[in-house]
Amino acid sequence: MNASPRRKELTRLAAQLFVQEGFDRTTVRMLAQEMGIKSGSLFHHFKDKQEILAAVIEEGTHNALAIAKRSLDESPPSPEARLRAMARAHLETLFTDRNAHVVALFEWRRLDDSAKAHLSHLRDAYEALWVQVIEEALAAGLIHGDRFLISRFVLGALNWTVRWYDPAGPRTPDELADELIAMIMPAR
C-alpha cells in the first residue's frame, strides 16, 4: 500500500463517501469532486475504484490491528483484562476510524477476488487476536461455549454498535465495552 500523506487523505475522503453513498452508487466523478481533484488525476493515485475500496479497507484494518495490539500490550495479563481490552480496542477503532470500519463491514463483499485475497491476511490476523483472547478466557473459565460462536457473537455485537451507539449518550465506549463483555460472562 502506498502510504503517502496525499493518498491517505484521498483514502479517508473516499471512505466517507462510500459510507454516505455506498460503494456501488459512488462514481469516480463523485470521488474526484469530494477529493477536490479532476477525475483523471484520481488515476494518478489509484488504478480504479476497486483499488480505492481496497485501500480504504486496508488502511482501516491496519489501524484496527495496531490499536488492538497496543491495547493488549498495555493490558494486565489476566484473561478478563485482555478480553475487556480487546472489546475496548474494537470500539476505539469503530469510533476513531468509523468510516473505514463501516466500509470494511458493509462493502467487503464488493471487493474483487484478488483484493479479497490480498486483504484476507489482515482480517485473519485481527480475528486471530480475538481467538487467542477468547481461548484464554475459555481456559480460565470466564466464559463458556464454542470458541467460534463466541467470537462471532462478540464481534457481531461490537460491530453493530456503529448503527445505534451515540458517543454523546450516557455510556462511554469503555463502559459499553465492559458491559458487552459482562453479558457473555456467567454471573459470579
Score class of each variant (00 low, 15 high):
residue 37 I to F: 00
residue 107 E to M: 11
residue 147 R to C: 15
residue 71 S to R: 04
residue 123 R to K: 15
residue 161 T to P: 02
residue 68 A to Y: 02
residue 54 A to H: 02
residue 13 L to C: 07
residue 164 W to C: 04
residue 136 E to V: 00
residue 91 L to D: 03
residue 105 L to Y: 12
residue 185 M to P: 02
residue 111 L to Y: 00
residue 62 H to C: 06
residue 97 D to F: 12
residue 49 K to I: 08
residue 11 T to C: 05
residue 97 D to C: 07
residue 58 E to D: 14
residue 15 A to E: 03
residue 36 G to W: 05
residue 21 E to C: 07
residue 149 L to V: 11
residue 54 A to T: 03
residue 148 F to W: 15
residue 103 V to S: 09
residue 18 F to A: 06
residue 30 M to G: 07
residue 76 P to E: 15
residue 149 L to T: 15
residue 21 E to H: 06
residue 85 A to E: 04
residue 48 D to A: 04
residue 26 T to I: 07
residue 164 W to F: 12
residue 108 W to N: 09
residue 18 F to P: 03
residue 11 T to I: 09
residue 125 A to K: 12
residue 116 K to N: 02
residue 121 H to A: 15
residue 172 T to S: 14
residue 12 R to V: 09
residue 186 P to L: 05
residue 129 L to M: 15
residue 111 L to D: 01
residue 179 E to S: 15
residue 162 V to L: 03
residue 107 E to W: 02
residue 132 Q to K: 12
residue 175 E to W: 00
residue 113 D to C: 00
residue 107 E to D: 14
residue 84 R to W: 04
residue 25 R to L: 13
residue 66 A to D: 10
residue 164 W to T: 10
residue 19 V to T: 06
residue 43 F to K: 01
residue 159 N to P: 02
residue 146 D to N: 15
residue 163 R to P: 00
residue 100 A to I: 03
residue 20 Q to Y: 00
residue 147 R to I: 12
residue 116 K to Q: 11
residue 178 D to R: 09
residue 22 G to R: 09
residue 177 A to V: 03
residue 52 I to V: 15
residue 50 Q to S: 12
residue 114 S to I: 07
residue 128 A to G: 09
residue 15 A to S: 11
residue 59 E to T: 14
residue 129 L to H: 13
residue 135 E to D: 10
residue 24 D to C: 00
residue 107 E to V: 10
residue 32 A to P: 02
residue 61 T to A: 02
residue 140 A to E: 12
residue 87 A to G: 14
residue 21 E to L: 08
residue 36 G to C: 04
residue 80 E to V: 10
residue 179 E to K: 13
residue 51 E to R: 09
residue 126 Y to I: 13
residue 92 E to H: 10
residue 123 R to N: 15
residue 136 E to P: 01
residue 97 D to N: 13
residue 39 S to K: 08
residue 73 D to A: 15
residue 170 P to W: 08
residue 139 A to E: 13
residue 134 I to V: 12
residue 171 R to P: 00
residue 9 E to K: 10
residue 83 L to W: 06
residue 173 P to R: 10
residue 185 M to W: 00
residue 17 L to A: 14
residue 133 V to Q: 01
residue 161 T to Q: 05
residue 156 G to A: 02
residue 4 S to K: 08
residue 65 L to D: 03
residue 90 H to I: 08
residue 62 H to W: 07
residue 9 E to T: 08
residue 54 A to P: 02
residue 117 A to K: 10
residue 8 K to N: 13
residue 184 I to F: 10
residue 169 G to S: 13
residue 45 H to P: 02
residue 64 A to Q: 07
residue 109 R to A: 14
residue 22 G to F: 11
